[in-house]
Amino acid sequence: MPRKSIEDYLKTVYELSQNGATVSTTDMSKALKVAPASVTEMLKKLADKGYIEYSPYHGTTLTETGRRIAEKIARKHRLLERFLHDVLKIDSQKVHKEACEMEHSLSDDAEESLCRLLKHPEQCPDDGKEIPPCDLMISSCEECIRLHNQGLEEVGKHNQNLVAMTHLKEGQCGKISFIRGGHNVLQRLLDMGLTPGTKICVERVAPLGGPVELSVRNSKLVLGKGVASKVFVEVERTS
């Protein structure tokens, strides 16, 4: 299965399900201009790979992995549109098609440079769609810039396959990769022993999105959900 078509499918699901609803096969078929039968077949394959959840009569939703790929590609697409339109002055009618081709070969580094060059744009020129944020762990570019101006700091390194601590299940362990937060909170977390590279295990999660209890350095800590969601860990494979 070529990467391009995986990405196109995931992007389509992503765009059609912007408000979180499931996407029907008919809508997919219309958007992709592909016969419904082919769409169904492809969706099954994507479901097998774990990118989407698909059930024949209910439709399709993205899994976490699928959503990430889709967001990334949508972001590249929209950044390219901006670039083609704003810098190269290409007609806004044409930018979409052009970007569709280029998005699959744009590297992450180039994407980042593009984002900086364009000064963190938020919307596309042709349809005003929102450009997904520069970092998947921040909900919008605006937030990214705002937090940056506020003196938001980060401790640690970004890495692939990171999840927020709040996504760990009870009993799951991981290694702290990076933490984001205001100066005071960061210092506090470090002082409590949550330094990058430290192994933590989630002991218990309070119901209804309450705080997380974790064990670290032979002791137990409780972090409110807000803080815990800003601590990103590399999940340890349970063997």
Binding site: M192, K220, V222, L223
Partner: peptide, 11 residues
């Protein structure tokens, strides 16, 4: 002021 989140040791 900054709202402080819950960060406490569970003794």
């Amino acid at each position: 002021g900054e709202s402080t989140a819950l960060i406490m040791e569970m003794h």
